[in-house]
Design a binder for these strands. Structure first.
Length: 407
RNA sequence: GGGGAGAUGCCCGAGUGGUUAAAGGGGGCAGACUGUAAAUCUGUUGCCGUAUGGCUACGUUGGUUCGAAUCCAACUCUCCCCA
């Protein structure tokens, strides 16, 4: 592959490369010296649950690997204690050694779905950040200015809205930038929300007399709600390890307008084909639901298999299009102590089944007509029912359970 | 160090003595409809075994009052201006 082709491949899907010439130069140098580029990615250890939004970046990393470069994943165990200043950060507890190891293992299992483990190195930033003395930290800090750090969007808006900014939070970008110095990274990939931190890495590297890394920015994947970015804490995400069924269903719930971005960022469907889909939708030749099913199938296939995707689709159609019951559902185990004269209060049953967090919530579900047993609607919250082994309890569209009686 | 403003339910945000489990919006959940767990519309959204009922809740702790999210005091935290 020529350098131009390599560059074109890497550029695809990115929002911005800073600077483009820098990346070209690094690719050239790497091919001349035979030395792979160090491509850096930082991950937060507190949420070891990789979702499609993270995958956008990881898939880009994979391309670098396929071109022979080295990927270095930094688990931000040290910086996690600070808490990323973006959003309503709450200071997080320092993770224990075991937790870190466990999370690292989880990460490994998950990113292997996307990355080539043979070309991936994992490091923890506590390895070097934890060893800095206060004096060292101050020396690093002296290379940056307050104004420079306050340029950052989060800080600027929090400042103008009168919201607090912890002094330690200001150090977060510095820590991330220093990671780049320690690793002598050539490229750092990240979402656009990482722009500031990654560019700061460039500044700091040059302060330390190093060649500056190239920043490569991917678009932020919008979450299932169609408004906010996909993130675990907002609950609007699809995890890469989720079951085919959940993945399919969640993807079917995205607003229609999001389909284009998902095709582009989360699948391998060629760009020309995506364009054809857009046109088909605009002209009415393609049905949005069918397109969305295709999208869901493509994504499930990446993380599971084509067969699993087909099954997930069949299940989805059975449950939501035909309103039938799913093939598999959790058991609601009832022991004799749960029954009074062979009956159980419907509200109690729902709470016991985990379908409602409280009696009040369960009562509401019943009153709203969301609860059926074997297809028969229960509308009276005071009802006592006589459970029969194998009966299907349904609350709303998503919650199912099969009664299992113990004797 | 001085002066000023503020802390309300998952989030934002009204509310300055009773009719406030607390307006409105967001989010969540449910129903209808449908083309899908899209969109739209409607309802609902503290907890308690079934309640013209009880309990908990408006930063914390006390106080005033028949009655407090609302008044008073102290404390904790945050923001702004000045130094």
């Amino acid at each position: 592959m020529t350098l131009e082709e390599q560059f074109a491949l890497l550029k695809r899907g990115t929002i911005e490369i800073v600077p483009e010439e820098g990346l070209k130069a690094k690719l050239k140098k790497s091919s001349e010296t035979g030395k792979p580029l160090k491509v850096k990615l930082g991950l937060d250890p507190t949420a070891p649950d990789i979702h499609l939004g993270n995958a956008v970046v990881l898939r880009k990393m994979r391309q670098f690997q396929d071109l022979g470069h080295e990927v270095i994943i930094i688990i931000g165990d040290f910086t996690a204690a600070i808490g990323d200043p973006s959003g309503r950060s709450v200071t997080r507890p320092q993770l224990s050694e075991e937790e870190i190891q466990r999370n690292a293992k989880t990460y490994y299992d998950q990113y292997c779905l996307i990355l080539d483990p043979a070309k991936t190195k994992v490091v923890f930033n506590s390895e070097w950040l934890g060893k800095l003395s206060f004096e060292d930290a101050i020396k690093i800090a002296s290379k940056l200015t307050v104004a420079r750090v306050l340029e950052r969007d989060d800080f600027a808006s929090r400042l103008s809205e009168g919201k607090p900014i912890g002094l330690h939070e200001i150090l977060y970008p510095m820590c991330q930038a220093y990671d780049s110095v320690v690793l002598e990274s050539d490229v750092e990939v990240g979402g656009l929300d990482q722009k500031f931190n990654i560019l700061l890495g460039r500044d700091l590297q040059s302060q330390f007399g190093q060649e500056e890394q190239v920043g490569l920015f991917m678009p932020i994947l919008v979450g299932l709600d169609g408004v906010q970015k996909m993130s675990k804490s907002l609950g609007n995400y699809v995890g890469v390890t989720e079951s085919p069924k959940d993945m399919f269903g969640k993807l079917m719930s995205i607003p229609d307008e999001l389909m284009h971005d998902y095709f582009e960022l989360c699948t391998d469907v060629p760009l020309e084909e995506i364009k054809a889909i857009d046109e088909g939708l605009a002209s009415g030749k393609l049905h949005p639901m069918e397109v969305k099913k295709r999208l869901a199938r493509e994504i499930v296939t990446i993380y599971h298999s084509a067969e699993a995707a087909a099954e997930a689709q069949a299940e989805f159609e059975r449950v939501f299009s035909q309103r039938e019951t799913p093939e598999e559902m959790p058991d609601i185990v009832l022991s004799p102590e749960d029954l009074v004269d062979g009956t159980i209060w419907i509200v109690r049953l729902l709470v016991k089944a985990g379908m409602a967090p409280s009696n009040s919530e369960a009562r509401r579900l019943v009153q709203q007509g969301a609860v059926t047993i074997d297809g028969k609607k229960i509308t009276e919250p005071s009802a006592n029912i006589s459970p029969v082994d194998g009966q299907v309890v349904r609350a709303g569209k998503l919650r199912f359970g099969r009664i299992k009686l113990l004797r």
